[in-house]
Amino acid sequence: MAETTQSAEGGLSFHPLDQFEVYRLFGEGPVHWYTITNVTLWMAIAVLCIVLLLVMGTRKRAVVPNRTQSIAETLYGFIYTMVEDVTGKDGVKYFPYIFTLFIFILMSNFLGLLPMAFTTTSHIAVTAVLALAVFIAVTVIGFVKNGVSFLGLFWVSSAPLALRPILAVIEGISYFVRPVSHSIRLAGNVMAGHAVLKVFAGFAQVGLLIAPFAIFGVIAIYALEVLVAAIQAYVFTILTCVYLKDALHPSH
């Protein structure tokens, strides 16, 4: 470690968080809400990839699919089964919304793993909007579908009467913490992985002795990140389904 410190003073630079910076693509000046930034660029690339995969890939409508169409169909079937299994038959009509969330997160996570890429899902602002959208939608659906009886979600009727107010408070807190954990889980996972990658990459410049280990570490972490990218998209989606199930069938 001492050697590292020595080298650090000799020009080692850690910028693990620089990759998350938002900047204007054209010209100078402050970032307004309409400014075209790297966020815009990478979201546009994500849209492009989604179009290539889901629209161009399925253009032939082949009964015997080629590779791209096969991927698209697998994703479709995967999410469709998940929505149907977790939320039940009446949750299927929300499938396009859930699939939109899933494909956006999945594509952003994977695109973010490209070298030099900007990861849109590593930003709290992005994931918080996603999670808040789910939270608000689920709450509204819950009240519209069940009326006041949606509050039965917090009133655990199977518990002893004395415990119920306490449980109601706990359930209420856990309900309102949902968007927080939902968003931070995604952003935190992605940000942590990318920051660790950068830290390992920084170690690689320390010296010939450490560089192989550092590069091996980068490879290992990168492989883990590929896994995490898919799993976090999956987790975000399945939690959305679970919350939606709570809204559609609030009885425990």
Binding site: M43, A46, P96
Partner: peptide
């Protein structure tokens, strides 16, 4: 900025998916 472009992106993706792809 991020929220604006995210909303734009999500709407575009949703429209593409619900009209064409899905």
């Amino acid at each position: 900025n991020q929220i604006f472009w995210l909303v734009v992106t999500l709407v575009v993706i949703y429209l593409i998916l619900s009209r064409v792809a899905l």
